[in-house]
Design a protein around this nucleic acid. Structure first.
Lengths: 303, 303
DNA sequence: AGCATCTCTGTAGCATCGCTGCATGATGTC
DNA sequence: GACATCATGCAGCGATGCTACAGAGATGCT
């Protein structure tokens, strides 16, 4: 007997195959064996009366029908999670587990208050993770993690049209960190012109701060080191190994070095939370997102 | 292990229980045993962490959570059928079986051309049924039948806010049928005043034409017979047993009696197609609905 | 060309799930 | 108090989805 209605799980499998570009990769994402994925695709093809995948080389790709189903799968998942959320809304405790990932400096800024809040919410369990990836890889994390806090150079919009819910959190200016004995250390602000011929300590290519640095120096800055851990960068700056560009709210100089604002140029990173649309429907996830927005607002307000 | 995602079928069960007001009635609608429905409800309650039904007397009713899920179930079903339709749209033949029901006179008007068209569409199978029910019962038929053609007195809107797709088809004026030897038979049109003190042959209470008759006679008309089969009514009128109100496009006097339009009063019935929102997403169902609209338009155009 | 590698597909066995059929429990009705 | 009605609990069965392993097809390297 043929199934009268499509199976949402099969649709999710198609979506995963389309997103990851292969049966094996999709299986890994879904935590099943490739065989299970292959069989699910076959069953689905039988249901809709036409193949949803076709072989190309030694891999597969979605047929037009498969693409259509993958796209529709999102709406189905959203509707299902909305159903659960509508039900959860009637309960006092949001309940459930929410996984949250953030890049290191964002995590330092947001996680402490988030976790404190979460402990006071009955039934809610926030699982933290820190993932330091390039700008274009944040979205991929949302396949496994409910809320991904990412950042990108101000003005860009790298996450438009990729089918992810984007919740802007805050705009964080990037300031210049100088050793205390630097020739510019007694200034109260700096311009890009002041910083020609400086030795920079930056982050790896593809990460937001590096791109902003290239923009304000008008080309290829003289970068002596590339380190993604800001606390290490801070230590190097304090020790006089160069100057750096550091996010304002995340960095506390505490007398170890000077942190001066830039004028005449917009140097900042934008921080936002990303989530898959269906995950974003979950009540607990919505609460976490709301909380992140509130926390971010209170971070910028005092400054 | 707890199911991570809600089961669409379970949601449909909840919807059926809410709509039919009981486990047994819902089971009948879904063609399963009451036991299956009961167990499904239990499993769902476990999933959402709170009961979806509660006992009241010897029956059950939905809890607020159950109501929420029943409402959300519609969106899930729509999203699922949209997925299938998006896929079917890539195919040449719409495919599948569509059940269509209509009241008798509507069926006579629409079914012949509909069936002729359907035979020319590969893969499509239109299953006809005629169901003569009161205005407020058409919607209930959509639980079992894809497309239900119903009618109601002009101006009313009995199918608003019941969660059914309503596709208006046509407005059919109601004319007065007179025996050939009636005192008014040589007139070219009539007014309500002309028709005081007449003996009427009408349809059973609760059916559209009966309500229109009460409206134009300004109270309780003198009804001698109530028959729902218009061909019988026509025979009675021709034989001089009274006058009647008959739909213009459905009736062909063919010299057996006179059919005169009314002036000074709006006497008509509105005909529309009803469908459950999820069923209406199916490509084959959409094609049938489109065809009905076109057929209805071509019926009224020549007049 | 030959071989190793990578990726998807096919088969057997196993666990799980939903449904039926019947028995039981609860609640109004005569 | 007996009965009818409606829902629920339980055992058994068939269907379904998964894993583990074996096979097939394509790619690329030597």
């Amino acid at each position: 007997m043929m199934s009268r209605s499509l199976d949402p799980h099969a649709l999710e499998v198609v979506r995963a195959v389309g997103a990851r570009g292969g049966v094996g990769a999709a299986a890994e994402l879904l935590h099943v064996t490739p065989s299970a994925v292959s069989q699910t695709l076959q069953a689905l093809s039988r249901d809709v009366g036409m193949p949803v995948t076709e072989r190309v080389g030694r891999g597969v790709r979605l047929t037009p029908a498969g693409e259509a189903l993958a796209a529709a799968s999102v709406d189905v998942a959203v509707a299902l999670e909305r159903a659960r959320a509508a039900c959860d809304a009637l309960r006092t405790d949001p309940g459930g587990e929410v996984t949250v990932s953030a890049f290191a400096s964002g995590a330092r800024m947001l996680f402490p208050t988030l976790l404190t809040w979460a402990q006071g919410v009955p039934g809610l369990r926030v699982v933290l993770a820190d993932g330091d990836v390039a700008t274009d890889q944040f979205a991929a994390l949302t396949d496994e993690i409910d809320v991904v806090v990412g950042h990108h150079p101000e003005g860009e919009d790298p996450w438009a049209g990729i089918g992810r819910r984007v919740v802007p959190l805050l705009r964080e200016p990037l300031d210049v960190a100088l050793p205390l004995d630097h020739r510019l250390a007694d200034r109260s602000w700096l311009t890009p012109q002041d910083l020609a011929d400086e030795r920079w300590i930056s982050v790896r290519e593809g990460f937001p701060v590096a791109e902003v640095l290239s923009a304000i120096t008008g080309g290829a800055p003289h970068v002596t080191q590339r380190l993604n851990d800001f606390s290490v960068v801070e230590a190097l700056v304090a020790a006089g190994h160069g100057i750096s560009l550091l996010p304002r709210y995340t960095t506390s100089a505490q007398g170890r070095f000077r942190l001066l604002p830039l004028r005449g140029v917009r140097a900042a990173r934008s921080i936002a939370a990303l989530a898959r649309p269906d995950r974003a429907e979950r009540l607990a996830v919505r609460r976490v997102l709301d909380r992140l927005v509130a926390d971010a607002a209170s971070l910028t307000a005092p400054h």
